[in-house]
Design a binder for these strands. Structure first.
Lengths: 151, 151
DNA sequence: TGTAAATAGGTGTAGAATACACATAGGTAG
DNA sequence: CTACCTATGTGTATTCTACACCTATTTACA
């Protein structure tokens, strides 16, 4: 019963039991956004993220923050320095966004805008609308229920 | 030079070069949405999805549609029957949404609503706002730039 | 007659990403 | 001296994604 836990993964997408938006991809743009306004270290960034109620984010994603920070630094999108003042724990690495990082954030904003449109469209169709017909294809195969543009 | 292609994966998230929203998770709710209004076979569903400009969706995701359909059927969220009329190709399996599938769609809608709020919040902060302070933590470590709630 | 193209429905799998257990270390409250 | 909070990570089994590839039917057209 002690190693049963290992088989209990929370959101396996092999079972479609619950909607799993599964997007840790949100972590990166939010980290960039936070660092645009404040120079913080990993743990603080993590706390801000948690405070913002990002979907699917939980305690287990904390290590990802550090990994992403290191990767962003490799890519020149953030820079860091050790903070020696104010000891309330071990040394901490304070990050700030570089110019390249700001450009990257605005790239992300463009991508998220597309996302947002896709979501708005989903709800437009979901609440009342009808799924639009793609291209010029008129449905042929047994549309039992209802159908639009019945040529 | 012929097997070089195999090493060119489009969006490896190990390199953060471009914003990868990477969400094939959109496929499932959109499939459910399409099937709520129409009984279609996999290929038609695929065409609708492509016509709706979902972010990140491309030709390579087509097999996923079939896999997801079979899985949804296993889970009782869709049902299918072979279509014998109207031969313009091989036999096709026509899917429709079950009651369980409709419930699942509304579960998805709830999840996507959270998503939408998260995106709206991102843009609110991105365009002018300031990242909010989590909990009651007042920033301590070298907030060089600016800061709010400076107690 | 044959061969190409579109439609239709898949399978196989290398490699990437995720979830989560676990490691390390300083400061401080008891 | 020990337990707890802060802070920064590493390791890896399992899952997911990208994409190459396979089969079959019908229509077009050379």
């Amino acid at each position: 019963m002690s190693q049963d836990k290992q088989n209990e993964r929370k959101n396996s997408k092999t079972s479609n039991d619950q909607p799993d938006l599964g997007n840790k991809a949100f972590i990166t743009p939010y980290m960039l956004l936070v660092l645009r306004d404040l120079n913080l270290h990993g743990y603080q960034i993590w706390q801000r993220l948690m405070g913002m109620d990002l979907p699917g984010l939980n305690e287990h994603d904390r290590p990802a923050v550090y990994r992403i920070l290191r990767q962003l630094e490799e890519e020149g999108k953030v820079s860091s320095e050790w903070d020696t003042t104010d000891k309330t724990g071990p040394a901490r690495r304070v990050y700030s966004l570089t110019e390249a990082g700001k450009d990257f954030l605005s790239l992300w904003a463009d991508g998220l805008e597309h996302y947002r449109k896709t979501l708005n469209f989903f709800f437009k169709v979901y609440t009342g609308g009808l799924v639009p017909n793609p291209f010029d294809i008129t449905p042929k195969a047994t549309p039992d229920k209802k159908d639009e543009t019945q040529n």
